[in-house]
């Protein structure tokens, strides 16, 4: 694992709340950090290349966009088949995130998680049905957990 240096870290701390909304944001960051704008741009390009920055852009509030129904669909599927099934479910257009996660027996039997967003609950349930069809006989148990409230959404916060 390649780590980040102190300057990269300072750059992350300076941008984790957002990019300055000024004409020359990289120059503005450079002034704060005591770096030339070109060095800020070079480092951010490198962080993007390495995947430390996933992307740069707008993070919409999906409720505000009308995606008011957000369902975490969870499935108990055969461990021997989960990789093929997870890849297939991940390719479905309605799925924004798809992971294998551990079970916590007996309270939590599910090992495959697929996040689905819709304009209403029926749309989410219809999408869950499509996932169920794709998983077929491999499903032993299933559930959909709808979110009823965003309690916090700040993203990563390194302590300055």
């Amino acid at each position: 694992m390649e780590t980040i240096d102190a300057i990269d870290r300072a750059l992350i701390v300076a941008t984790q709340g957002g990019l300055p909304l000024v004409s020359r944001p990289y120059e503005a960051l450079g002034e704060t950090l005591g770096l030339p704008a070109a060095e800020v741009q070079r480092r951010m390009a490198r962080l993007l290349e390495r995947g430390v920055i996933r992307r740069i852009g707008a993070v919409p509030n999906h409720y505000a966009l009308g995606y008011v129904a957000n369902g975490m669909t969870v499935w108990d599927v055969d461990d021997a088949q989960i990789d093929a099934l997870g890849e297939a479910v991940g390719q479905m257009p309605c799925v924004t995130h798809c992971y294998q996660r551990p079970r916590h027996l007996p309270d939590w039997p599910y090992n495959l998680f697929a996040m689905v967003h819709g304009h209403d609950r029926d749309e989410v349930l219809a999408q869950a049905e499509l996932i169920a069809q794709r998983l077929g006989d491999a499903v032993r148990a299933r559930d959909v957990l709808f979110s009823s409230r965003i309690l916090k959404k700040t993203g990563l916060r390194l302590v300055g």
Binding site: T15, G18, R54, R55, I56, V59, P60, N61
Partner: peptide, 8 residues
């Protein structure tokens, strides 16, 4: 928008 900037 909840944020505008890099996602880490």
């Amino acid at each position: 928008l909840t944020r505008f900037g890099p996602m880490f």
